[in-house]
Nucleic acid binder design. Structure first.
Lengths: 220, 220
DNA sequence: AAATTAAATTAGATATATCTAAAAAAAATG
DNA sequence: CATTTTTTTTAGATATATCTAATTTAATTT
């Protein structure tokens, strides 16, 4: 079962929305994620359903099938491997890689991905800290919590951001926070939820609850 | 002026056929090169003409424009850089790279190609010995002649093949001829044009005129 | 529960890219 | 130079992917 590029993009969006905790994925949600109109989504859902990568009942809802999930995971695997390549080998900044990886993820060649994986030394996480599924679609993710849910004096490591808009990524870069940074919570302000953290045992940083809740960490 | 992937492929084929020595490029030639039907070619020629990458007069013929040539050269540049990447970095064999490079050549990101070029150390030739155009479309190619046109006792180096079909490439590999091999012409048979060559000062090889005329060499 | 609002789908259009079959133009042949 | 053959183009169909506008279904409100 081969998917077109558009179908791959829809399926990836559906997978992300399904995993995003939401109970059901709506046509509007998908339209928002893909930057398209609900009418186009309805059309595509019918096609994806015919290809059996989703189960779909009109006006009711949809569910991604096991084979659909596997296909989505392989696309995600390719996307994240290419991101590692761009950052590690071609000196891209971690907030510049998304668009190019969106194109590269659709290249079809199992051998290419196998070799790329080896060339990059089998990375387990992409430059944003997101886990890279293996060739069987298995993801070994560490438990991650929003920074604002850590307690005072706890230490951990930034592993990802929820909102990966270029604007937010640039903001993080500017204040000196980055994926992989080791942090310690120095203080939490009760009434507004803002936090004060120590980055790499050197720099003190103050951030609003809005910002802190967008940063995901693993505790150590 | 942005081209679709199909348009890029047609334009590249037209460029190759134009450079291939032939005085005029026919609809049938293009259909053969692209693996499509003449009717589809006619349609596409109209579109390429509208986008001003070719000049086209129905039933008469076509000419690639300067801007068309530049676009084709950039696609070829990308294709060949990716081939170098696949062979040098990912251990692909030189007869395995074409299909994947056909996909990778359509990735749009000037920065990516700039960085890839640097990462590969600004290669001037691809794994088949074909020259890589620079970012301005300039190609510095060495004078190349078919192997069967060399004279007895002359020495040189294999730099490319005319017919790069997988079958032919595998044949070459099998007999021990490869891009970069240093050769010396030991004998030429007048009546059938076949040649006997010494490869890397070790191995003696006998080949028909058909094979020899498909192998391009630079003399030294 | 009827009326209103929101969400989702269908109908119909457009654009790309392809095909087969038919028609037109150019080239080759007797 | 008229006829045949080849080449090329057009006409009409199909498939993908998208849109706007209209319709249908579901959810919400009164």
């Amino acid at each position: 079962m081969d998917l077109t590029i558009a179908e791959e993009n829809y399926l990836k969006a559906i997978y992300h929305l399904s995993e995003g905790g939401k109970k059901s994925v709506s046509t509007n949600d998908i339209a928002g994620e893909i930057q398209t109109k609900p009418a186009s989504v309805s059309d595509m859902l019918r096609r994806l359903s015919e290809k059996q990568v989703i189960e779909y009942r009109k006006y009711y809802g949809l569910q991604i099938t096991e084979s659909g999930k596997q296909l989505a995971l392989q696309t995600i695997r390719k996307h994240r491997l290419w991101e590692v390549f761009l950052v590690d080998k071609l000196q891209f900044a971690w907030d510049e890689v998304h668009e190019v990886a969106e194109q590269l993820e659709h290249i079809q060649s199992p051998l290419l991905i196998q070799r790329l994986d080896a060339f990059l030394n089998y990375p387990k996480f992409d430059p944003h800290g997101d886990p890279i599924p293996d060739e069987y679609g298995d993801v070994r993710s560490r438990p991650r919590i929003p920074l604002n849910e850590m307690n005072i004096d706890q230490v951990g490591q930034i592993v990802a951001v929820k909102d990966s808009s270029a604007a937010f990524l640039r903001y993080l870069d500017k204040v000196g926070a980055y994926i992989g940074a080791r942090i310690k919570v120095l203080d939490k302000v009760e009434f507004d939820g803002s936090v004060e953290i120590l980055v790499d045992q050197k720099k003190t940083l103050f951030m609003s609850k809005d910002v802190a809740s967008n940063i995901l960490v693993v505790q150590s």
